[in-house]
Design a protein around this nucleic acid. Sequence first.
DNA 1: GCCTAAGTTCAAAAATTATTGAAACATCAG
DNA 2: CTGATGTTTCAATAATTTTTGAACTTAGGC
Lengths: 173, 173
Amino acid sequence: MKPPSEKSAGRRPSRPSYEPLQPHEIELADFFVRMAGILGVPRSVAEIYALLYVSSGPLDFDHIQGRLGISKGSVSQGLKFLRGHEMILSVKEPGSRRERWQPTPSLAASLVTLLRSQVLPALEQAQPGLQRVLADAQSRGAQPEVIERLTRLNRWNSRALELAPLLLPPPGA
Amino acid sequence: MKPPSEKSAGRRPSRPSYEPLQPHEIELADFFVRMAGILGVPRSVAEIYALLYVSSGPLDFDHIQGRLGISKGSVSQGLKFLRGHEMILSVKEPGSRRERWQPTPSLAASLVTLLRSQVLPALEQAQPGLQRVLADAQSRGAQPEVIERLTRLNRWNSRALELAPLLLPPPGA
DNA sequence: GCCTAAGTTCAAAAATTATTGAAACATCAG
DNA sequence: CTGATGTTTCAATAATTTTTGAACTTAGGC
């Protein structure tokens, strides 16, 4: 099942070859890919996370690229994204510049971080605009029905913003 | 500011012209567009919803198309989507085949419907696969660390599925 | 029952988003 | 220091998604 020289004996392989994903890994990747899709997270990012998630130890850059069969660029960007959302962390061995990655302990916390980073900016940026829209409607003497809707929307927005900081330090699950 | 013949006197305009969105309407549309974007809902759909949301009465097909300046096809598909997720409802006047649309009373309920329709199928479809992945890992004697992760993922999925029906009849907000 | 207004469909075009890969950069082991 | 290793960048390309519009269908008023 293994192609020629899996990281066998002491020889440092100049171009180690990696196995493609196994069926069970593909299954899990599909799951993550679909879930990520809902939030608009690209396939390659989900695949990287899935691979780290089913793997026993931390994996390095080349390993990820090799097993997934994607480009250096994609791996780099994917890791950057996951890092940025605190979904993975790196373990560094002394005597090597290479980083090895593994998923953050709590997937739940990761998801919260991800959601926050998408929703919060939108809410924050919208705040003044929504208030203006409401004020505008009031000053133009719009239908009570519309005023009511816009008022509710503003309340929602405010409450969501108040609630957000509570999610800041997500407790490990 | 108004182009020639706004729906003026009694003459039924053969090609009524509609005003483009006003600044305050654009602002609201932008908000909805951004929020929708997070869930992968296309711009035109969000715009239609936004327009209905700031409008006093229900609007008909041509009105929506005219004010938004988008194609018939987009309006049709957009309304289909919104209808399908119970985010809008139509009022029909007797003596006309034309339908007029307005947002469902509760935006909250609409969002729940939307989310359910995206997340639930993914969870359901994943269920057996996830169980298989876990069983597989166990039978292969994978690292406890990995077994632990996969177990947790399965528990999550199950709990989410149990929880889902509670959201079925979303109480109006 | 026609005939036309009202809406839908869907293939093609446009717009957007993701991926690639080669060149640039950074870091650290020697 | 220096050179090679490890990573990032980003313009070009590929893939995907959205929008369009013209042809088609449907429904209901007359």
